[in-house]
Amino acid sequence: MKKLMKTTSVVALTFAFVGEAAATEWNVSVWGKRRAFTEHVEKLAELVAEKTGGEFTMNVSYGGLSKNRENLDGISIGAFEMAQFCAGYHPDKNRVVTVLELPFLGVSNLEEEVAVSNAVYAHPAATEEMAQWNAKLLMTSPMPQYNIVGTGEPRDTLEKMQGMRVRATGGLGAAFEAAGAVPTSVTATEAYQAMESGVVDTVAFAQHAHLSFGTINQADWWTANLNPGTVNCPVVVNIDAYEALSDEERDALDSSVPEALDHYLANYGELLKRWDEVLEEKGVEKVEIDQSVIDEFRAKAADPAREAWIADMEAQGIPGQELYDLVVKTLADKRGS
């Protein structure tokens, strides 16, 4: 009898262990703190857990797994299963999606940003390039057009931007450089200190980041309508981890992406609605740039940057013209619908 009980206990423990082992747990690497920029990641984790009855969970880590510039490297070696990164942090590693960072693309809202990102992410060139990092593009982190905060006199003409030290990455950095400014690509988490110490005069961010990283607290002014472009920050998953999911888990993940993005857009929309209140509360002047200045900026930055990017990509065997045309067509289709 004692032997039977012992055998039964071992079998029970074995089944319990198997049941426990069957649960899937992913680690997700982001940075900073929870904010509008990460709400779709948080919502995705919530939805996946709900749809799988808690059998597929995600642990979202804010800087505990990797530095933000090293998230793609971490994905490539399987250090974690999901991560967020920004193309401008390492444009040589994610050349295809940098088309979305070209200045003055004409994207006017977050819904359009989602549309053009989805189109580029689905292009075979993007899939192939990310596969080199064992990464699968899952969803974008749509952000509005960047604008700059600064101290002292507003930099509201190109003459005043001459020599301006601005935190701006990727295509935005190139745009400001074309206007005579001096871009630096310090990370988002380093921007406040760079501004406080005088390493930069101005910082280009979307609204949520000016709040989250404290640059708005250093600012005397904010440009309301410069809108030179934005950065593209994909969320990717490790291909091996994705393929190891059960059909149910994979369906839970894939089907949750549109819901997570809808949540992100709604949440960000609320932030934009109260942005003027934030400026007033913090005593930051809202600066409207004259249209003639914006036109001059676009002439200096947009066409040369686009042509240089296309030529550079084509020289590397990447269909630069095709990718740019895809963005233009997607925007037209989105507005037509």
Rank of each mutant, 00 (worst) to 15 (best):
R250E: 01
R250P: 01
D251N: 13
A252T: 07
A252P: 01
A252G: 10
L253D: 04
L253I: 14
S255Y: 09
S255D: 13
S256H: 05
V257I: 15
P258W: 10
P258R: 12
P258Y: 08
P258E: 06
E259M: 15
A260L: 09
L261V: 10
D262I: 05
D262L: 06
Y264I: 02
Y264D: 00
Y264A: 07
L265Y: 07
A266C: 09
N267D: 15
N267V: 12
Y268C: 07
Y268A: 12
Y268D: 07
E270F: 08
E270G: 11
E270S: 14
L271E: 12
L271Y: 08
L271W: 12
L272A: 06
L272Q: 11
K273G: 12
K273H: 13
R274H: 14
W275L: 08
W275V: 11
D276E: 13
D276Q: 10
E277D: 12
E277H: 02
L279C: 10
L279D: 02
E280P: 07
E280T: 15
E280N: 15
E280V: 10
E281R: 14
E281G: 06
K282Q: 12
G283K: 08
V284S: 10
K286A: 15
K286H: 12
V287Y: 04
D290S: 08
Q291P: 01
S292C: 04
S292P: 05
V293H: 04
V293W: 08
V293Q: 09
V293Y: 11
I294G: 00
I294P: 03
D295C: 13
D295S: 13
D295A: 14
D295H: 13
E296C: 02
E296Q: 14
R298Q: 10
R298Y: 00
R298N: 03
A299P: 01
K300Q: 14
K300R: 11
A301L: 00
A301W: 00
A302S: 15
A302M: 13
A302E: 11
A302F: 06
D303W: 02
D303L: 06
P304S: 03
A305V: 02
A305F: 02
A305Y: 02
A305L: 00
R306L: 10
R306W: 02
R306N: 08
E307M: 08
A308Y: 03
A308H: 01
W309K: 15
